[in-house]
Design a protein around this nucleic acid. Structure first.
Lengths: 212, 212
DNA sequence: GTCTATAAATAGATAGAC
DNA sequence: GTCTATCTATTTATAGAC
């Protein structure tokens, strides 16, 4: 097998094992065995176990289909389409989590074990989501549509529903004993809850309009 | 030091290290060193490393101040005090998570590493919460106060806000860069969002009453 | 590019003296 | 109850032949 080919094969295998057992819980021996090569081959491509892990995190961080939802939501934001913004954020996240369950485990392990992926991911995606979703909410508050409360608390609430739902589906409740719904249904209901939860009620909105 | 005393001292130290680095990431040597004794002492009290971990999980599961909120919420449930039910669930959970951050890490590691604590905890607490909160919601739906949707989706949404908020505060965003609010404020706002989100609006409730 | 063999360090666990 | 010393298996990593 050619060098690059083997390298990426080892990377794939390592990805699977690391995501399953964490860094400390995975041995280079297991990786080599699973890849069908000797340990020497693994160390030929990656000088140390840590280098292999770093390469893997880097790969995931770059090639991950989990891109910032900023672009995808642009048109809904421009149109002040509240449902569009939150529903599409939700369905995008839930779908991605379902498709790449490895990534979530990798990220959780990484966060617990204190590796850099967690921080990198946090910087690149989470901070961004809080920023742009937070400012959308702020805009809608100024338009008198959403209630006046720390916008980031609304973001926290919504992201919480999404992450926790995926964490349940992919980690604790894989057989869906607690709750068994499609991602579409979950996204729809979570969006519904959030929007009803943060919108001014009709009377409130009216009296607010009368004030000004 | 007396036998029992030493035993529980080792247990405490082990708790801290396991919660920080997981099972695989903690060595018996480190535990012994941190406890100020030889490894032989550790193995005198706990036959194997796994036994030590099991003892620790058992201890946490039994002596944990994280009790089922069922009792605590009884009176609010009986009084149909929606705000009381959800706010007190929230503040109880958030407070506990803040006080015992070890436990959350231990639980996350345990879930990822596939140890039994995760499952035990799941069985004893989570299933219970879904059951009793789910049936309260169902009761309130029948009373025409909450919207008709899978009650457990509402539970998922609310528990999601709580867990995710604590996970942020204790794991990813310890310096509160994304969001810095007190537990009381968070509990209040999450409750507000959920209740506004799942209650029938006034008009809806009225037309519903007219139907019957 | 790939392997076998092996080095060097570290892991979990035990023996036996005090 | 505690320690030192030690055993055995495993782990990361390397050397060198093909």
């Amino acid at each position: 097998m050619a060098g690059d080919e083997r390298r990426s094969q080892i990377l794939q295998i390592a990805m699977q094992l690391f995501s399953q057992h964490g860094f400390r819980g995975t041995t280079t021996r297991e990786i080599a065995a699973a890849a069908g090569v000797s340990e020497a081959m693994v160390f030929r491509h990656f000088a140390t176990k840590h280098d292999l892990y770093a390469a893997l995190l880097d790969y995931k961080a770059c090639n991950s289909e989990f891109s910032s939802p900023r672009e995808r939501l642009k048109k809904f934001i421009a149109a002040d389409d509240d449902y569009g913004v939150f529903y599409n954020l939700a369905i995008g996240a839930l779908t991605y989590h379902s498709q790449d369950q490895q990534f979530m485990r990798l990220l959780m392990f990484s966060a617990l074990e204190g590796h850099e992926l967690a921080e990198m991911f946090f910087e690149r995606f989470i901070v961004d989501i809080y920023n742009f979703l937070g400012s959308y909410i702020e805009k809608r508050q100024q338009a008198g549509v959403f209630r006046q409360t720390e916008p980031r608390l609304f973001v926290r609430a919504f992201v919480g529903m999404l992450i926790h739902h995926s964490l349940n589906n992919n980690l604790w409740d894989r057989d869906r004993r607690l709750l068994d719904v499609t991602n579409e249904e979950a996204a729809k209901q979570f969006t519904e809850i959030l929007l009803r939860g943060i919108k001014l009620e009709n009377q409130e909105a009216e009296s607010k309009r009368n004030e000004s």
